[in-house]
């Protein structure tokens, strides 16, 4: 563990807590894409298949349980909670996210570290996470006034993978044979997808203006 990866995990945890805070306290999911939340639940479900077979550390297992539990409960909240589900705008959240799943699955079958079920599922989860934010970014472009919690949620979610890139650079230089092209390329693509969001987020913070993404 290094400071970049710890900061990345804490930033990721913070993004989940901000979203849970928004949904649980103000009982609203306005501006949140259910499709991105569903994709993330699928990402964790396929990535943490080893949660009961490979024990790495208490920290690792605890964080996996937190991410699994929070992602599935957020999906449940938005779908089934009588008050929260009312603030979900189905007509705006139209990205066909199933179109993301198939290519990621095919790519995982072709490019993986080992052709076993667990490894293919793991590679699938890495590829899927890289594009999981797309429905949310599309929804943000359609959302007139993005509330602060939603903006902070997306910012933290993007920042965590950027910190992971620093972690990979650090590990490359400090550990022998530490090379993981699948996570490196996917993590870079994932972070680049946030580039324009980061720009507008920073601009709105600098000029103290409401966050607005151009349509």
């Amino acid at each position: 563990m290094n400071i970049f990866r710890l900061a990345g995990d804490m930033t990721h945890l913070a993004s989940v807590l901000v979203l849970l805070l928004k949904i649980h306290t103000i009982k609203s999911c306005a501006g949140i894409s259910l499709k991105t939340q569903e994709l993330y639940a699928l990402v964790f479900a396929t990535r943490y298949l080893d949660i009961f077979t490979d024990f790495i550390s208490l920290y690792n297992t605890t964080m996996k349980l937190i991410f699994l539990g929070s992602s599935f409960s957020i999906v449940w909240y938005i779908r089934n909670h009588k008050i929260v589900s009312r603030s979900y705008d189905k007509s705006q959240d139209t990205f066909r996210h199933y179109f993301l799943i198939i290519p990621c699955l095919l790519l995982a079958l072709l490019v993986n570290e080992k052709f076993t079920f667990k490894e293919v599922m793991w590679a699938f989860s890495i590829y899927l996470e890289a594009v999981a934010i797309l429905p949310q970014l599309v929804l943000l472009q359609r959302t007139r006034n993005i509330d602060n919690l939603t903006g902070q949620y997306v910012f933290l979610l993007g920042a965590y993978r950027a910190l992971y890139i620093l972690n990979w650079i650090y590990r490359y230089f400090t550990e022998t044979h530490y090379v993981h092209w699948i996570t490196w390329v996917s993590g870079l693509v994932q972070t680049l997808l946030y580039a324009d969001f980061f720009y507008y987020y920073f601009e709105s913070w600098k000029n103290n203006k409401k966050l607005q993404l151009p349509a």
């Binding site: 990866r5 995990d9 990721h12 490979d54 790495i56 690792n60 991410f67 992971y164 972690n167």
Partner: peptide, 10 residues
């Protein structure tokens, strides 16, 4: 030595 390449990252 084939240290099982355990995925230690989240």
């Amino acid at each position: 030595n084939s240290t099982k390449d355990v995925k230690d990252e989240l």
